[in-house]
């Protein structure tokens, strides 16, 4: 500092350290305002839930049909030795059910009682969604949207935030209870 001609390694290092801490602080303050979410496509729309519900995202393996259960349980698959269900939650959300193609993925999520696989048309990875752009579902707005907490208005359009706690606790997911 001061004398530009001198090459003071200490000054440079100090400067670098300050820059580093500053950047960290900025990142942190930004992090406070975003929600880490797994973003994916259901019924042609973009949906998301908090990453802490997600265990992993896998390609759709061979699904074995289970007799005498509700249609939303599309089958079971072998997840490294654990028998896991693949469920199609789109009817629960009132969505159309376009075929799950090659981009299809299974989002393995863990609820209080069991782990289960949610079929999605595509997965778009983990994104930090900004709270500033979040609009909660207005209570009493008349629009009934089950299992939805609200949506984020982001550049690419809207991302709907699912209420995973309510969804995973729904008895409709449990075979044979209907």
């Amino acid at each position: 500092m001061g004398d530009d001609n001198s090459y003071d390694i200490r000054t440079i290092l100090t400067q670098m350290r300050e820059d580093y801490w500053l950047a960290l602080a900025e990142e942190e303050s930004e992090a406070r305002e975003t929600l880490e979410c797994l973003v994916f496509t259901l019924g042609g729309k973009r949906y998301a839930f908090e990453t802490h519900y997600a265990c992993e995202v896998i390609r759709v393996p061979k699904l074995v049909r289970v007799p005498a259960v509700q249609s939303l349980i599309r089958g079971i698959f072998n997840l490294r030795g654990e028998i896991t269900a693949a469920i199609d939650i789109r009817p629960m959300l009132g969505l159309p059910q376009p075929e799950i193609g090659p981009t299809g993925r299974i989002l393995v999520v863990r609820g209080d009682n069991f782990a289960t696989g949610i079929l999605a048309e595509a997965a778009h990875g983990v994104q930090g969604l900004c709270f500033d752009s979040f609009e909660p579902v207005a209570t009493g707005s008349g629009i009934k949207a089950p299992f939805v907490r609200g949506h984020f208005a982001v550049e690419e359009g809207s991302v709907i935030l699912l209420d995973m706690e309510a969804l995973l606790a729904d008895p409709e997911l449990v075979a044979g209870e209907l």
């Binding site: 289970v66 007799p67 005498a68 079971i76 072998n78 654990e82 028998i83 449990v174 044979g176 209870e177």
Partner: peptide, 27 residues
């Protein structure tokens, strides 16, 4: 024998599942 887990606790016709040589489950 592998259990089907709590999601299938009331399921009919099934006792559990197993995993066959090809890695796929069989009920």
């Amino acid at each position: 024998v592998k259990g089907l887990g709590k999601q299938f606790r009331n399921v009919r016709f099934l006792f559990g599942a197993t995993i066959l040589g090809d890695g796929n489950p069989a009920l």
